[in-house]
Design a binder for these strands. Sequence first.
DNA 1: ACAAAAGTGTTGTCTTTACACCCATGG
DNA 2: CCATGGGTGTAAAGACAACACTTTTGT
Lengths: 258, 258
Amino acid sequence: MNSFEEVNYFVQNGHQDYLPHISIDCVIFGYQQQQLKILLLKWKGLNGWGLPGGFIKRREPLSEAAYRILQEKTSLNDLFLQQFHVFGDSPYRVGERSTREFTEKFGLEVQADNWLFERTLSIGYFALMDHVKVNVQTDFFTDDYQWWDASDVPQLLFDQNEVVEKALLTLRLQIYHQPIGYNLLPEKFTLPEIHTLYETILGKELDQRNFSKKLMALGLIQKLNEQRSIGAHRSPFLYQFEKEKYEQALKEGIVHTY
Amino acid sequence: MNSFEEVNYFVQNGHQDYLPHISIDCVIFGYQQQQLKILLLKWKGLNGWGLPGGFIKRREPLSEAAYRILQEKTSLNDLFLQQFHVFGDSPYRVGERSTREFTEKFGLEVQADNWLFERTLSIGYFALMDHVKVNVQTDFFTDDYQWWDASDVPQLLFDQNEVVEKALLTLRLQIYHQPIGYNLLPEKFTLPEIHTLYETILGKELDQRNFSKKLMALGLIQKLNEQRSIGAHRSPFLYQFEKEKYEQALKEGIVHTY
DNA sequence: ACAAAAGTGTTGTCTTTACACCCATGG
DNA sequence: CCATGGGTGTAAAGACAACACTTTTGT
């Protein structure tokens, strides 16, 4: 959705194709330089940062909508995606919104009762992905994107700081019950890499030896006969997830503490 | 909402007061005779069992809506209530619904584009309450209610069996991170009572001695100097939750395994 | 040879599990 | 006095946490 005509049609007539009053917001986590990152888009005009999001088509299953929105923004399809909360309590989510500012910033005339400006609840989804596979698409409303450090997210538009907070909390809780990493790491990774990933997500140090013992005991990854060359240091071995076991663990859950 | 006039107004004009396309479904858990129960309402006409639910008022915060709906149905206000999932994938939640059957059963004329019959996502909430405090209110659409054993729920209307399943799953997961019991048990309860409650929720046996050791170690309950008389048996001591500590544990979470 | 990161085991402590007997009460 | 359920402790096994030195690699 990039041309003025497309956007104008969406704004004026989108309610025919999409459900009003409900949107989807995506918190996209990536992992980069040993830091947990979140993908934010810069809104044109509003001049602030916000989460990628979108609306649900009238005949589209909810989870398909979430996948579609993610794919539109990241051109990626193998990813972990999970609903985590519906936001409908903050003042922003209770009242309707003014169209004036919108008209000024984007040059689109909208009636006061335009569907986009009615009260809209938002369903939060979070996704995990390997940031190097991501090819971010901006659109008419957004003109820039950036991966922000998860612990250092700027002030976001609307109530979206709350959304990010909740996503982080959910991710941290989840890491104790589900394997995480498949979607955040490259296919082949080293023990120090996944170790740092866990430390990063949990925001605390994990003993190197205990971590690898435990991880190996889960039996979800296998050691390969290859090493990565990392410069003037000993070359770490590469590992990869055993997909079937990983999927099974995702379904059945695991219990551990790291 | 009991009179024909009220209902007719709601059906014809409800979209002015309520958000269309989104509803709330409540899975209400109670505990009774050592069994985990779920409150179901019997729909008039449709002649099937379903969950209590309702719509969100246009200017009402989401969680207030959930509380209101619960209060309307149960006349109860001190309760534990939590959002757990949005349902929008099942065929029932993707398409619009036929008004014909509705018209026949309830004698209300509705247009094909009536707001109640458009596609509607449902936000699932689950609640825990002491069933003896509950005073169930039926309304125009429902003429009976019953507490059903959680492990033996009948075929429900729409996609609601899925909703109940997910609620149970969430409850079971949650019990490892949050104290549970305050809202399901009477103010004063015995160790065997809370012990059976946990066994019931988790669906497995828990060693009596280990359970009480662990429970006491959490420091959320205190022993009273009273006993309950239970007939021809030794009288068990009564306990009660220490509210402040309980609330704190709710907020901060706990980790244990039972 | 040096700097930097990878890799690898053991021990003590704590947590968890398994298990059985006596006590209180009412009929 | 009997039947039923309540209440209580200990020991063995397993899980967790703490901890340091050697190896590899490139410069």
